[in-house]
């Protein structure tokens, strides 16, 4: 009789542990799905950056040689942003695109052929910088990074989070460069 009671108690403990493990896994797995959704949305928003890069290349192509290092650099950043690169590579490309686009717009603004061309001067001093500004505002990765950090903290700081990690829930990746080291 005592053996049966002990077995029943043991079974109850096992079931409780299993329920706890499944609950911890499911909760953190669902959270991770939400993080991945936010990341997917961020990727969608990054297309606006690619579009602006292409627009700038169109205008720059009329006034600079295709072998200009700035044009080559922007083309490379667009390639990374639209390809299958890792998040840190894309973050670095996005950052570099901001720097390069500003530099290229500055070069174009002072170029004689642009100054003589009312339409392109208008693009270089008006629409394109505003477009870049708007796309940067849309693709501000800080909102995603804050969510990813909060998730990682929950995963690391709670007992259930460690159980979830044990069962395969991975930490969220940051949209940041290696130097930023988030």
């Amino acid at each position: 009789m005592r053996g049966r009671v002990f077995l029943a108690f043991l079974l109850m403990l096992l079931l409780m542990a299993a329920a706890f493990g499944i609950g911890a896994y499911r909760a953190h797995f669902n959270e991770k799905i939400r993080i991945d959704q936010a990341l997917e949305s961020l990727r969608e928003v990054l297309t606006a950056r690619i579009e602006m890069g292409n627009n700038l290349l169109t205008v720059a192509g009329r006034h600079l040689d295709a072998s200009d290092p700035m044009i080559i650099s922007i083309r490379a950043q667009i390639g990374i942003l639209s390809g299958q690169a890792s998040l840190s590579e894309k973050a670095a490309a996005n950052q570099q695109l901001t720097i390069d686009s500003k530099a290229l717009l500055d070069i174009l603004e002072h170029k004689a052929s642009v100054i003589q061309d009312g339409r392109d001067l208008n693009y270089v001093t008006g629409l394109l910088p505003r477009g870049f500004e708007q796309s940067a505002q849309w693709a501000d990765a800080s909102a995603y990074n804050t969510a990813a950090k909060a998730f990682n903290d929950r995963l690391n700081s709670s007992f259930s989070g460690r159980i979830a990690q044990f069962w395969g829930v991975e930490k969220a990746e940051f949209f940041s460069t290696v130097e930023e080291g988030l």
């Binding site: 959704q37 949305s41 606006a48 849309w138």
Partner: peptide
């Protein structure tokens, strides 16, 4: 897309 991203990030956070 930008609105959706903002909403998703807040939900996740």
């Amino acid at each position: 897309n930008a609105k959706q991203y903002s909403k998703d990030a807040i939900d996740a956070q």
